[in-house]
Design a protein around this nucleic acid. Structure first.
Lengths: 264, 264
DNA sequence: ATCCATTTGTGCGTATGTATG
DNA sequence: CCATACATACGCACAAATGGA
């Protein structure tokens, strides 16, 4: 009932969480673990597999390879700051400055598609399932490592009214402001966040290591009359943190200076 | 280079995501997969292990056991609705009504501890690392299945001023309101969300299946003068969704009725 | 209450392939 | 070209959980 593999995993996990094995450090090789614990190679691999699936360890093949304690760098995404309905601001601009403020180099690629809506999106866009809509996909990278996929869906009739939505390029002033200029002022939005393990597509697009969950984050944007946009953002879970600041933000900044500050 | 196991996994995954194998349905048994694909048992187990780690499949031992497509029920947590600084309301009351509205039965257990602060919490509470603080832990369950752990930390000096914080029982009016009554009016808060694989402690407390990430969600609450609370909530990722509604919520409800509505 | 059949869980030994320095 | 270290796969054995006869 004990589980040899479980025990070895637990021991290694302790060494990692206690800081005895720091991020970047190498675990003993498989052969060493075999000798140390007097078990078979399969058992050792099973033990380490647990740690890999917990996102604690990464395996590297090749001569100077080994099993390495994963290091994590976290990027903060201010969900309530970007595209605040009152303080309109370019979306990508906001993103770029935010990333640069954190000392990294942002980049992104655009793509435009016409797609048939699946249920979840159709529902929120208030369209029928299977209807065509405009999809603007933006893969965002930090230091040339992809960190998030942002898929924005717009109803077809809106895109026909605001033709710029159909251009396969970044919109300088940001879509929120563009839509506002054309009489579609965004007054509110709803964000839904969930965590899940990535699909193979996510793994490919975000170059995810095993044991990395993703944050799926769905924003539905409203004007006074209608739903104008649904954005599905998929973040690499180990590289991102989503932050909301709510309440009397002005007073907060006034009284507490630049807090809420950057936390490790 | 191809990977037999990968192929089998991909084939099964397709059957699941395409709906050919619905949630609750059983995959072929290991023996059947062995026969179908002419591979060894280890290979089959390796293939299914991928699906388990993706949270798609659950294994059940015993004579009518098997490998089952996981069903997921999602509970929505309205992060921006609860304890809104303007519309003060009891926290647990809010939680209970919210869960009941979704047709489930809520319950919770309380626990009070004095703890030494670790860096991450100390930092946000504006206390020194290692200083003692009050921890109020609340494990929340839905239909007697635990779904979230909520750890609220209060600075010691505040607890000495507001003694009820030291009682190991639910506070009827909710701590936010209690603190407001005693002159500590919460004016804003910051939420930080991230996804990660669970620690063994999380697995035990939340009875998590393999391949289930957790949402870690950290709320720092401010009065005009100081930080009064840091709450760390850990959600089972497969059973929860965190929702924020921002902007002109009043107008939203007025114009769009009860939208944002419940989505599957 | 016992025993049996089914199905997954754990572990061993071995062989060969692949990536990297 | 070789040595190192992980990747993948085969075959075997026995244990543990569960449900039915």
């Amino acid at each position: 009932m004990s589980g040899l593999a479980r025990g070895i995993a637990a021991q290694l996990r302790d060494q990692i969480t206690s800081g005895q094995l720091r991020p970047g450090a190498k675990l003993p090789t498989e052969d060493q673990l075999i000798a140390q614990h007097g078990v078979s190679r399969n058992t050792v691999r099973g033990a380490v597999a647990h740690l890999v699936n917990e996102g604690l360890v990464r395996r590297v093949v090749g001569r100077d390879g080994g099993m390495v304690v994963r290091e994590r760098v976290t990027l903060t995404y201010h969900a309530s700051r970007a595209e605040q309905p009152d303080g309109l601001r370019s979306e990508s601009d906001g993103y770029f400055t935010e990333v640069r403020d954190q000392g990294f180099e942002p980049s992104q690629t655009f793509e435009l598609r016409l797609v048939m809506l699946e249920t979840a999106i159709a529902d929120r866009l208030e369209q029928e399932e299977g209807v065509t809509a405009v999809l603007r996909r933006c893969v965002r990278s930090v230091n040339h490592e992809p960190t998030s996929i942002q898929d924005s869906y717009y109803p077809m009739d809106l895109a026909e009214q605001v033709r710029e939505l159909m251009s396969p390029a970044d919109i300088p002033q940001g879509t929120t402001r563009l839509l506002a200029e054309r009489g579609h002022l965004q007054i509110a939005f709803t964000d839904e966040l969930e965590a899940r393990m990535p699909t193979p597509e996510d793994v490919a697009l975000l170059r995810l290591g095993q044991g990395t969950p993703v944050i799926r984050y769905l924003r539905t944007a409203f004007t006074r009359e209608r739903v104008v946009r649904v954005t599905v953002t998929t973040f690499a879970g180990d590289r991102n943190r989503v932050v909301y600041t709510l309440g009397d933000v002005a007073a907060l900044e006034r009284e507490h200076g630049r807090r809420p500050k950057q936390h490790p």
